[in-house]
């Protein structure tokens, strides 16, 4: 059983990564050397799900072959640095000394970062896997604010949709698994839809949110772009809180990530 982190792309990238640990995953398009969701069971045509399209494809087609799996973005990547690579020395220092949640990197460093990951030896890959497997859930950048208020402030045009989502998720949740003590909406969430988690948790989380979101996609064809992606990331915090209530020694941690968005 393995650990794989999928980098979610919606346009063909210049370079791809294809190793047992890191895989480029395209949605809605195909490109040489990259996995695409234009196969198997998929929702590639539902653009309002943004990176949830990638998560759906992995859930329905690949998750059961993995014991941990994760998702990153085309330009955002978890700081996974098993052999202290010089490219990441500054980022590593910021995260260990300053406790930064993320580090901005030059766009020009992205190919070198992909090449670094592609070059991991079997030994380095195993070290990274061991570290990832030591956690049950890793997520990127928690925002500590009441989720509902935070969503409505950021997406005022979709406040009514949020109320429907919250109400339906609340009802559906009780059908998927018992809830105790934690209510939705939650007080915080891990954003960016970047997460690495045990496969069983990922499948449970997807079974919790996807039926609700797919029904809403059918029912509200005029919903704003990317809306279901924005809503889903806000459900993650509530899910993690619920799991920690049930399993208090769950190893959950915010993990720093790199954003390749700086000029130069």
């Amino acid at each position: 059983m393995g650990v794989t982190i999928f980098a979610c792309h919606h346009a063909a990238p210049e370079t791809t990564t294809d190793t047992p640990l890191f895989r480029t995953l395209l949605s809605g398009i195909a490109a040489a050397g990259a996995l695409t969701d234009l196969q198997g069971e998929n929702i590639a045509g539902r653009a309002r799900f943004c990176e949830m399209r990638h998560q759906y494809f992995v859930w329905r087609n690949l998750a059961h072959g993995l014991d941990h799996l994760g998702f990153e973005h085309y330009r955002r990547a978890f700081l996974i640095d098993p052999d202290a690579h010089p490219l990441l020395a500054t980022a590593r220092q910021h995260c260990t000394r300053g406790g930064a949640s993320h580090i901005a990197m030059p766009v020009s460093a992205l190919p070198a970062h992909q090449a670094m990951r592609q070059s991991f030896t079997a030994e380095v890959t195993e070290a990274a896997r061991r570290a990832l497997r030591a956690h049950d859930i890793l997520f990127a950048e928690a925002i500590h604010a009441p989720v509902e208020a935070q969503f409505k402030a950021n997406h005022p045009e979709a406040a009514a949709l949020w109320d429907i989502f919250a109400q339906r998720l609340d009802a559906h949740w009780g059908l998927v698994f018992p809830r105790r003590h934690v209510s939705f909406p939650a007080e915080w969430s891990g954003y960016r839809n970047m997460v690495v988690m045990r496969s069983e948790f990922f499948c449970e989380y997807m079974a919790l949110i996807m039926p609700v979101l797919l029904a809403m996609d059918d029912e509200f064809p005029q919903a704003p772009p990317r809306m279901w992606g924005h809503m889903s990331e806000r459900a993650l915090g509530a899910y993690i809180m619920q799991k920690r209530m049930e399993q208090p020694l769950l190893r959950v941690r915010q993990w720093p990530y790199l954003v390749f968005n700086q000029p130069g």
């Binding site: 928690a142 105790r180 007080e187 915080w188 809180m241 208090p248 020694l249």
Partner: peptide
């Protein structure tokens, strides 16, 4: 450090489930 399963915690230490809920909310 909170290793107890929830049913036993609720039965024997009734103030602690609420503390656990606070911890999962305010883990930072």
């Amino acid at each position: 450090i909170d290793p107890m399963r929830l049913p036993r915690l609720e039965a024997e230490f009734p103030l602690l489930p609420a503390l656990r809920a606070r911890a999962v909310r305010d883990w930072h």
